[in-house]
Design a protein around this nucleic acid. Structure first.
Lengths: 206, 206
DNA sequence: ACAAAAGTGTTCGACTTACACCCATGG
DNA sequence: CCATGGGTGTAAGTCGAACACTTTTGT
């Protein structure tokens, strides 16, 4: 019974969403890249286990996290049959020795069935983007320029979004609004800065 | 690490979808009604565990099954913290001493957090109806009259569907078609019989 | 001037909801 | 006849995708 975390961040410099993996410190698959994962402890909440996995394996704190699906192929772990609960997580944007960041498209082969987990979970992440506000807000941060929205969508879906449609989508998200501030990055017309309104703790999780 | 199954069937006589529960034979909650559930064995697939749970607790074979979500509140089981993977299942329509069938609306309070599990999973079942074909087909059986489609939708959503819209929805489902046969049940105009085409094993699971 | 980035407008088709109306059968 | 269940038609609204065009910046 383990928890494996698809740990994401938005890289402002390279304008892309990245997923973190780490070299395994123990057998099996010693030295190979793998998703951060831990064996669930007695009485531990999934959210706590996800945070622990990311901290243990990457030395990064998690900003938010949530469930994806359960993988139950009996041969996924050579040590014996263990279920894996796949979760998403968004890490704080900090330095870490252990964390290796890749695009979802450039991700090298991973240990266990982790490559397959990532492949199967990617559509689930796409579904959550701009819909699950906890997820989306964690990735964007409390405010973000339009370029970030474009880059995030492109990174997750694989294809660049239509800017017009994306703009309208953003505008329709409640709790999100344009500020008067404008941002320039490099050349091009400066864009509005989108800002999440401070949410009073009323939940909206589908 | 246990698996709890929301076991459904369509009751042709009462024209409603029902969920099965059984009196617990062991402590805790001895004698109280609960969802069929088992502790997952080493190396057991989720589908097998679900089938085992329904067989052990209800003596019914499962026609189909699938994942819903994971529940991880540490205090859900007084014996100690155990995760519960909630699954849906559709049982064969057979007699069983152990199984007690209820509408989702009339379900009495259940042991553990099972009432809450059912409440939280009901929307997930609604999402699957007429979309997840494995789920839908298992509930309807290989052919079914319109009245069944209406009753199933009403049972799961809680409100009666618009017959016209439901008809068009059915017509748009691929793998499903109207046969020339017509069915009468009681009074009223006889309706078409909808039939699932024999599916060549090409998967369609969202 | 040109490329890059941002923003507006419009259209099309799919799907959802809602409602109005007609058809066939048993009692 | 009429209540009950089945079926068709139509229109408004929403949503996503696609595309055309304008605006504002840096080089």
């Amino acid at each position: 019974m383990s928890v494996d975390v698809l740990t994401l961040r938005y890289n402002h410099l390279d304008r892309q969403v990245e997923i973190a993996v780490a070299h395994r410190q123990t057998e099996p698959y010693l030295g190979q890249l793998a998703l951060p994962g831990v064996v669930l402890r007695e009485g531990e909440r999934l959210a706590d286990a996800a945070a622990r996995a990311v901290w243990d394996k990457l030395r990064l704190p998690l900003r938010a996290q949530g469930q994806l699906t359960v993988f139950d192929e009996p041969h996924r772990d050579p040590r014996g049959a263990t279920l894996s609960i796949a979760m998403w997580g968004v890490a704080e944007d900090l330095e870490s020795e252990q964390a290796h960041w890749y695009t979802l498209d450039d991700l090298p082969p991973l240990a266990f069935d982790h490559s397959q987990i990532v492949a199967e979970c990617r559509p689930l992440l796409v579904e959550r983007l701009w819909r699950d506000l906890t997820f989306t807000r964690a990735i964007t941060g409390s405010s973000f320029p339009v370029s970030a929205a474009v880059a995030i969508t492109r990174s997750l879906t694989g294809a660049p979004p239509d800017r017009g449609n994306l703009n309208r989508r953003l505008a329709s998200i409640q709790g999100l609004g344009v500020s008067q501030r404008r941002v320039m990055l490099g050349r091009g017309r400066p864009g509005h800065l989108w800002e999440w309104h401070p949410v009073d703790p009323s939940e909206r999780q589908p």
